[in-house]
Design a protein around this nucleic acid. Sequence first.
DNA 1: CTACAACTTCCAGTAACAGGAAGGTCAAGT
DNA 2: ACTTGACCTTCCTGTTACTGGAAGTTGTAG
Lengths: 127, 127
Amino acid sequence: MNISEVAIKAGLSVKTVRYYADIALVPEAERSAAGYRTYDEPALKKLIFAKRAREFGFSISECQELLSLYQDEERTSANVKVIAQRRLEEIIQKQKELESLRKELAHLVSSCNGDDRPNCPIIDYLG
Amino acid sequence: MNISEVAIKAGLSVKTVRYYADIALVPEAERSAAGYRTYDEPALKKLIFAKRAREFGFSISECQELLSLYQDEERTSANVKVIAQRRLEEIIQKQKELESLRKELAHLVSSCNGDDRPNCPIIDYLG
DNA sequence: CTACAACTTCCAGTAACAGGAAGGTCAAGT
DNA sequence: ACTTGACCTTCCTGTTACTGGAAGTTGTAG
């Protein structure tokens, strides 16, 4: 597989596939005689894994940890769980922040007339 | 007021106060004879406004719009409301994404034994 | 007069890529 | 054989909203 094919299959952009190798998130691809990157199934699987982990919001370095656990036959599920649990807490924390913002902003928005006069509770609140 | 005093009062870092003037989010501060930035109450108020707007997650350019509306005696509350409404929709969208992620991740985490064996539904799911 | 804190400008780094330039390669059609 | 166009390469810059740090200047307390 060339890079565009693997990118499509992994659901990533070509740029991102190259980037992931640049930063060593995944190993450098093999090269054809002309210097083109070539990918096999295991390489594709790592890219898919990285993609999915990123979608959960794991940082690149967390993805690195997860990928190495993925390839480690002697991993412990405890190690994996710690990382996932930590991310879960982050998500919950972020949800709390957003919910608090949403309530406040929704209140302001609903109390704003939205007409052609300058008086505005949103501006008042911020000022 | 010197920059550190205004920064404290606005709840911003000194770096951020300088940055906001660099990018023209707020006007450049007056200078003392020695070149020190000096701030008056109106300058402080703009910084506080910017700080609050940022806390709501408005981007710098949205803060710029809001600040100019703040200073515009002839603004319409409709203009303000549009910006706030848009941000509110973004927040709600983000909440949906996070909730979906949270559910999925929580499910995986709870189904992972977290012991010393390699078998792990989290890894399985990602791979 | 000497510390030392606070100020200045300027440059680099962060996260995770995306955009684009300049140039090489491959496959299809003529 | 040649050309065209899609695809590949590397390298450099830009994005967002700052933060960190170096090198040099100023203000103030003792």
